[in-house]
Amino acid sequence: MRVWIVVALCLAGHAMAAPTEEELIVEEEPMVEEELVVEEAVPEEETTVGINPVQIETGEFDEAIQIEEDFPAENPCLNHHCKKGKVCEIDEENNSPMCVCQDPSSCPAAAGEFEHVCGTDNKTYDSSCHFFATKCALEGTKKGHKLHLDYLGACKFLETCVDAELSEFPLRMRDWLKNVLVTLFERDEDNNLLTEKQKVRVQKIYENVKRLQSGEHSLDLLAHDFEKNYNMYIFPVHWQFGELDQHPADGFLTHTELAPLRAPLIPMEHCTTRFFDECDADSDKYIALEEWAACFGIKEEDIDKDMVL
């Protein structure tokens, strides 16, 4: 899966850019004729992160992502992988690697409140490391099975999402998805933010003179645009499904796969949880492409698995 662009765009249309760091490498040459020659600092090449401007690194949430530990070459743990919340230890009896739950106290202290996360148990954890270590300790229990990372930040009171508010959620979400793709297309060039097939589809949206430009729009205008320019919204909805359906890519979205999208949104959009819960029309804990598309108002005859590129 491609890397993700971290641009935290909220549904209201604001954008945040994730900061990057540059390391300056200074090399020293030996003294020549009592003069010390120091080369100019050379910044490391900037690394592109992310493909979805709102979604943060999937690894922060995905309980199935494998994490590689750094060990000396002779250590059996060198090539052994453990999922989030576990660390590799050596079984002394046969000198073989094994994954054990990480002690939450061994997690690095949170650098600030921005690292706090809220679990579905409505408990604030110092960081995602503390959360997954705690979840691992509950593995095999009913409580552990139900425990998931809910959203970023400390737990707080979230207003009840009423029906009228719920009906407004997809209006903003559809518009946001369309603008995310247009932004990626504008910035892509040789950055491989989109595949060639995706570029072809987004280019048609980008060049359409009827396209509603990004910005603050009334709900009435968003509803009117969806009705008049319906075809512009079909691919963005399919694209987002494909971006989330990664672990594994099986045509269904789990709570964990939804986390990179929903976790940053919940503190800003209190209808997020109810919206995705109701997308699961058959209540089987999985959201199929057909259920996802229906949530965003895409007609059944326009659902096409080939668009999930």
Rank of each mutant, 00 (worst) to 15 (best):
T120L: 10
V7Y: 14
P30T: 04
K210N: 15
A293Q: 03
K285Q: 09
D304C: 08
L184K: 09
A288W: 01
A259I: 07
E89N: 10
E93P: 00
N79K: 06
G153F: 06
A110I: 00
V26D: 06
E216I: 10
P248N: 05
V237A: 11
G242P: 03
V182P: 02
E227L: 11
F131S: 09
M1C: 08
V100I: 06
Q198T: 11
L147N: 11
V182R: 15
V32K: 15
L166E: 05
L36Y: 00
L147S: 12
D245P: 04
F169R: 06
H148G: 04
Y125T: 02
D103G: 07
R172G: 13
H81N: 09
F275H: 05
G119D: 06
C107H: 09
Y233P: 00
E46F: 08
D225R: 08
T256K: 09
Q102D: 03
T120I: 04
N122V: 01
E139T: 03
S128Q: 09
K299F: 02
D190S: 12
A223T: 07
V37N: 11
E196D: 11
L258W: 06
F235N: 04
T120Y: 03
F132P: 00
A15W: 07
K142Q: 14
Q240K: 03
E27R: 15
I51P: 00
A288L: 02
D304N: 15
E39C: 02
E63R: 12
E115Q: 13
A259G: 03
D103C: 06
T58K: 15
A12D: 14
V26Y: 07
E44D: 12
C82R: 07
M31Y: 11
E68P: 05
A15T: 09
H81S: 13
N52W: 05
E89W: 03
I303F: 06
L289V: 03
D304P: 06
V87S: 13
D62L: 09
E290Q: 15
L289D: 05
E159H: 13
E290I: 10
V200Y: 10
K305R: 14
D103R: 07
R174V: 00
K123G: 01
E60M: 13
V117D: 09
R211Y: 00
Q203K: 15
E115T: 06
D250H: 11
L181P: 04
K156N: 05
I51K: 09
E165L: 03
A110H: 04
E159P: 00
H148D: 10
A17L: 09
R2H: 11
A109W: 02
G85W: 07
H255W: 07
I5V: 14
K299W: 00
I287G: 11
I205E: 12
K305N: 13
G242D: 07
A249H: 13
A17N: 08
L177A: 10
R174Y: 07
M307G: 05
M98T: 01
H130G: 08
E300M: 04
L147W: 05
E68K: 10
H270G: 01
E159A: 14
L149D: 03
V117F: 10
V7Q: 13
A12F: 02
N191I: 00
D163C: 03
S128H: 07
N191C: 05
